[in-house]
Design a protein around this nucleic acid. Structure first.
Length: 271
DNA sequence: ATGGTAGTCGCACTA
């Protein structure tokens, strides 16, 4: 049977309502089959559904929250089911998953991991404690909920951890900065081990080449300073590793007017 | 060592 190309994009949009025109530009220019959004910053009812419907994305799964966080998956491919989980049981909307209606099936998990505040000590910073607990729960949950359909899974999102030396502009200077501390990287590696997840972005851009998906709003000139971090990720289960054919980090999107501080990551799979 | 920017919802919080 002929392989079908399925293009999946992930983007921390930092308010989907404010940046709906940028989202539409991404959909028009790159035509992903599925777009996973983080930080939509609105409740389900306020999600700009009509814009997505007009653009051909008629299948939409939303896990929204007033003002903060929130994730969604919009798709041209129908869903067989969708699910969401309240990690850490505190009412935060940071996870949603769908199963795509394609031969062989495909489950997509979309995560927005807590940023974790500034101080990398869980004893004095409860936001960092929350981040570590969230990641610990990801490890436990992925280990304890194994089923047959897990063979074909994609995990995307803003994981708020830049794990490798070349995922940050200065490994040495960021070792004590939240997103690049050893305790976070260790936990991320435990999550990866839970399903032998494959880091798709790094299949295409090998170290020591730098790879970033986020540049702070606080830099005077983000492009010239280029003090980025790779906080956004696309992982697949081993059965899908060979199916990833193309990967784009849309750096130019950081320069768009009224940009998000994250840029889209787009991967094409031959499924 | 500090402060720099952005978004939402209100005038504090998260990132």
């Amino acid at each position: 049977m002929a392989k079908r190309t399925v293009k999946i994009a992930t983007w921390n949009i930092n308010s989907v309502r404010l940046r709906i025109e940028l989202v539409k530009k991404l959909l028009t220019d790159h035509k992903p089959d599925v777009l996973c959004l983080q930080e939509i910053k609105c409740v389900d009812d306020a999600f700009p559904l009509k814009d997505f419907h007009k653009a051909g994305y008629t299948h939409v799964a939303i896990h929204g929250q007033k003002g903060y966080h929130g994730v969604a998956i919009v798709s041209r491919i129908p869903f067989l089911k969708f699910d969401k989980r309240d990690f850490c049981a505190k009412g935060d909307a940071r996870h949603i998953s769908v199963e795509l209606d394609i031969p062989g099936g495909l489950t997509i998990h979309n995560f927005y991991v807590p940023a974790g505040g500034d101080e990398p000590d869980p004893e004095i910073n409860e936001k960092f404690a929350h981040k570590l607990a969230f990641m610990r729960e990801m490890v436990d949950w992925f280990k304890s909920h194994k089923k047959k359909s897990d063979a074909r899974m994609v995990l995307v999102g803003d994981l708020n951890v830049a794990p490798h030396e070349h995922d940050v502009w200065s490994h040495k200077q960021l070792l004590k900065i939240v997103s690049h501390t050893p305790v976070e990287v260790d936990l991320m590696n435990e999550i990866i081990a839970s399903h032998s997840w494959v880091d798709v972005m790094r299949l295409f851009v090998k170290p020591p080449e730098k790879l970033y998906s986020w540049w702070s709003y606080r830099a005077k000139d983000w492009d010239a300073a280029d003090k980025g971090r790779r906080l956004d990720h696309v992982w697949v289960t081993p059965a899908l590793g060979e199916t990833a054919k193309e990967m784009t980090v849309l750096r130019e999107a950081r320069g768009w007017e009224r940009a998000s501080d994250h840029v889209p990551v787009i991967v094409s799979f031959a499924l």
